[in-house]
Nucleic acid binder design. Structure first.
Length: 104
DNA sequence: TGTTTGACGGACA
DNA sequence: CTGTCCGCCAAAC
């Protein structure tokens, strides 16, 4: 009998660590982060955790986009600005995942 | 305690 | 392409 239950603190930490691995100039989807953090089918959890990040965090949350390459963050303009600094420019509101997706 | 919501995503019409 | 439906689950209400 496996005990899979993880505290929110552990889940949060796992997600933070995975997001921190995304290199500049690359992006990952919420689903991708969830899977790498050991939380399959729980992309929403990733979004929830990121939404609670402190404003001054060093975690590159801006490199996380939705499955279509679009920006889900309510404050999209800020995120797009950060991405632009890394050479990522959304076309028609979305990043080309075909070319910019982070592949560990 | 029951219901709704949300930085999601895939299947389907 | 748009819109609907369902699974997911902590937090807010």
């Amino acid at each position: 009998m496996l005990i899979l239950a993880k505290s929110m603190t552990e889940v949060r930490t796992a997600i933070w660590q995975v997001v921190s691995l995304i290199p500049a100039g690359k992006v990952a989807s919420y689903r991708q982060i969830a899977a790498l953090a050991g939380l399959p089918q729980q992309a929403r959890m990733v979004g929830r955790i990121l939404s609670k990040l402190p404003k001054d965090t060093a975690i590159p949350w801006h490199r996380v986009v939705n499955a279509t390459g679009g920006i889900s963050n309510p404050n999209a303009s800020h995120q797009i600005e950060r991405l632009a600094e890394e050479g990522l420019t959304p076309i028609n509101g979305r990043i080309n995942l075909k070319h910019h997706r982070w592949q560990p």
